[in-house]
Design a protein around this nucleic acid. Structure first.
Lengths: 341, 341
DNA sequence: CACACCTGTGTCAACGTTGTCAACGTCGGA
DNA sequence: TCCGACGTTGACAACGTTGACACAGGTGTG
């Protein structure tokens, strides 16, 4: 086992191969105008010295760190996994690396966020909600010259490259499905207010109610924050009412699973006693029992595409400014007609 | 919206405050021996220029990038989420950042891995299996002077700081539980052979069989690779046999969930028709139905602790070399006595 | 044969920051 | 009054790499 010794530099390699550092640099970066003989000597020298380029020095002089960030809020949400997979898929076999920035309560600290990203030396970032909707952050990134692309913004779509799904329509469709099954007393578990998607999805639900001639029952709207625990608590509050809903619309799958557990604890069977729907088609919506009726948002594809948008900017290709992604209503086993009372 | 202009440097701040760059550096790093008046001037200047230190330059001269890596193999495995959460928890409010390195087939490419980590300029890494068991990688990291700590290695424990659970005992306990319920024909779904844990867990099962006077039925051992799909396929092979097992021991929860779906497709009810256990206590083992009997490995805590070991090395504190973590047999609803045939 | 141009190589200055060392006061004590 | 110590500041050289430029020699063109 070798001792930790000073890392070989490009100069050491040069000396070893009898050429200048610059020539080594040329060989290692595949630049033209180096004779084959020298190329071979340099490669041999590099190998025998176990030379590996120092990214930091390279980053400093090139003004490119090859570091991309992913900014999101809740590290345990199941869609974060998809976000990462999407980015990593695009980044595989590129020299870019992924740095993760889970940030608690982004909105209150949006002032710090850009400074954080700036001093981390990132070349670009992918912003997930709610950062994707924060104008302050967008502005600061632009002025710092950091490329960015967004996932699921609902506001100011034109300001920066965006990957969008039509939350309103998707929410309307899933609510319509529940209404058509015959439900009339329908509870809603909203996501965190800082996410613009919460508002959009609620609007979609309300459109469906309106179209069906149903009132929008504000007393059956409970606030959650996209975590399973909050879904559990919200469902408990809904199910404890005198007039308990026969169906619950949760604004993401995590909260729906929380509601599912809450229902199970009360001895209710889904979907016989309670119809339950989520949003996102995250992995757990397929794994839990019953699998959840939900709306598929192509989070993986959006993340991959967003990453591509960032890379395009870094490579001076004109980035796509707006990519509309399709959603899909997935009817699974968690929805049924309401029980006859 | 401001135009992307050149980032302010420490020199600009110095000029603006009427001091040298070095003095600015001192103020910003909280070094002593700077008069309060100058400190204030420098801070004001920095704020008015929107100055943020350039981590890359700092990294170059300090030989510290403040970047820690997480090396793992399968980006979708549910325990990777726990790994990340553990690391990020320890890293919160430190200047360190997390860079993720999902690497396909680590074992075949262990030669490249260290080079990759080295040239990324990492200060340290946390190695998850199977990288944690790869001597080549350990060796290369040591010679490159990169701090490391490991999670769940089964081999060469003494070589680098390790966070371990006793896989053998844990596996023996869960197998014993199944045997005590009365099962005699027990299938096994192994994890990927490159993970030393697969071997260890299989040994634990075999000890339980031996102690109970049962033969170790090699014909009932199926190979998986820790993914849900592989668990699904392996379970199908097991259940299609003439003498199908009444219980299946899966070496992680993902594969157990795959087996659960396979059983469901065949019309089998867990646990009435088939007893099923997993390993890891990952989130999905609690969410699926029935919730899985499994062994809790404190992955979150191990990751947090491993991160602490790395940081200790970077701060020249003597790191803990070995941390044994407790496991827990969690008996849930997926296990029951075998059906009377 | 002069000239432009290309190939192959080297020199040097950046990139933004911090460590080292020296210089300049000022103050307390001998 | 002089000396050493200390607090405060700056000059300068790193850190490892690449971009801009220079230069030597060869090759093709008019």
């Amino acid at each position: 086992m070798e001792k930790a010794r000073r890392r070989a530099t490009i100069i050491d390699v040069g000396r070893h191969a009898g050429v200048s550092a610059k020539t080594v640099s040329r060989v290692l970066n595949g630049e033209p105008h180096v004779s084959p003989a020298v190329q071979q000597r340099v490669r041999d020298a590099a190998a025998s010295l176990h030379y590996h380029p120092n990214m930091l020095a390279r980053a400093l002089v090139r003004q490119r760190s090859m570091l991309l960030g992913l900014v999101y809020e809740n590290p345990s949400a199941s869609y974060v996994v998809e976000l990462q997979r999407g980015m990593l898929t695009r980044l595989a076999d590129t020299p870019y690396r992924l740095v993760v920035f889970p940030i608690a309560s982004i909105i209150e600290r949006s002032g710090e966020v850009a400074g954080l990203l700036r001093s981390a030396g990132l070349d670009g970032v992918v912003l997930a909600p709610p950062a994707a909707d924060d104008l302050r952050i967008l502005n600061d990134l632009a002025s710092a010259g950091i490329a960015c692309a967004r996932i699921g913004p609902s506001r100011a779509i034109e300001l920066a490259p965006s990957n969008i799904v039509d939350d309103i329509t998707a929410a309307r469709e899933i609510a319509t499905h529940v209404i058509e099954l015959g439900h009339r007393t329908i509870g809603i578990i909203k996501g965190h207010a800082s996410h613009a998607a919460s508002e959009a999805r609620t609007m979609g639900y309300s459109q469906a109610f309106y179209a069906a001639g149903l009132p929008m029952r504000l007393d059956l709207v409970e606030q959650g924050d996209f975590t399973r625990e909050s879904g559990h608590a919200a469902a408990e509050r809904l199910l404890a009412r005198a007039e308990a809903p026969t169906a619950i619309l949760a604004q993401n799958d995590d909260m729906a699973v929380g509601a599912l557990l809450a229902a199970r604890e009360r001895g209710l069977t889904v979907p016989d006693d309670l119809t339950l729907v989520g949003f996102d088609d995250s992995e757990i919506s397929r794994i839990c029992w019953p699998p959840l009726t939900t709306v598929r948002q192509p989070v993986f594809e959006m993340a991959r595409e967003a990453t591509d948008m960032v890379i395009a900017q870094l490579e001076d290709r004109p980035p796509l400014l707006r990519h509309d992604h399709p959603h899909d209503l997935l009817i699974r086993a968690s929805t049924a007609a309401p029980p006859r009372s």
